[in-house]
């Protein structure tokens, strides 16, 4: 398909790119913006490793046509890291607690997990364990059994609440 200009915001910065608008946002992020933290595990919306936030909502970037992001805001794992860094830390509290709680093993699901968790905490700053499990239910993890991930998200929620309070 013919390339066209797509203007959007990526991790807080304005971006303008000529691209085939029917290619996936995942493809756009990885091949045009070198944002390789967004992973490709299935290309069919069945694994969640490509999860990013589109206007604040977790989506499978492999299922989003690039044309759809016109005028919208995209946040990837790199943006989350930067958000943490801007606050004087190396990483975002979610990333910190993922490491501390042992929620990172092979790490391939991790960026997508962090993004789903980020979206959850944005809408629901103190979720229950059930709500955490539901929020990450579109993100497969084969290493952890999800337990440490759930703990990490709950811990991050606590940390972030304390900071707010």
């Amino acid at each position: 398909m013919k390339e066209q200009v797509i203007r959007f915001e990526i991790n807080g910065e304005k971006a303008e790119v000529y691209a085939d608008p029917t290619l996936s946002l995942l493809h756009l992020l990885r091949s045009r913006f070198n944002l390789i933290g967004t992973k490709e595990g299935c290309r069919k919306g069945e694994c969640g490793t490509c999860t990013v936030l589109l206007d604040g909502q977790a989506v499978n970037s492999c299922l989003v046509p690039a044309g759809k992001v016109e005028g919208k805001k995209v946040l990837t794992i790199e943006g989350v890291t930067r958000e943490g860094a801007l606050k004087g830390k190396r990483v975002h509290p979610l990333q910190q607690s993922f490491v501390e709680k042992g929620a990172v093993q092979c790490g391939f699901c991790t960026p997508g997990m962090v993004m789903s968790a980020y979206a959850l905490l944005r809408d629901n700053p103190s979720p229950s364990p059930e709500q955490v499990r539901e929020a990450i239910s579109g993100n497969l993890c084969r290493c952890s059994g999800y337990k440490q991930i759930e703990e990490a998200v709950l811990e991050a929620a606590k940390t972030m609440q304390e900071k707010q309070g």
Binding site: G45, G48, T51, L54, Q57, A58, V59, N60, L63, V64, S116, A119, E134, A135, S137, G138, N139
Partner: peptide, 9 residues
């Protein structure tokens, strides 16, 4: 339906 990501879109 599906997953949170799919329900969001």
């Amino acid at each position: 339906v599906g997953s949170p990501q799919v329900r969001n879109m």
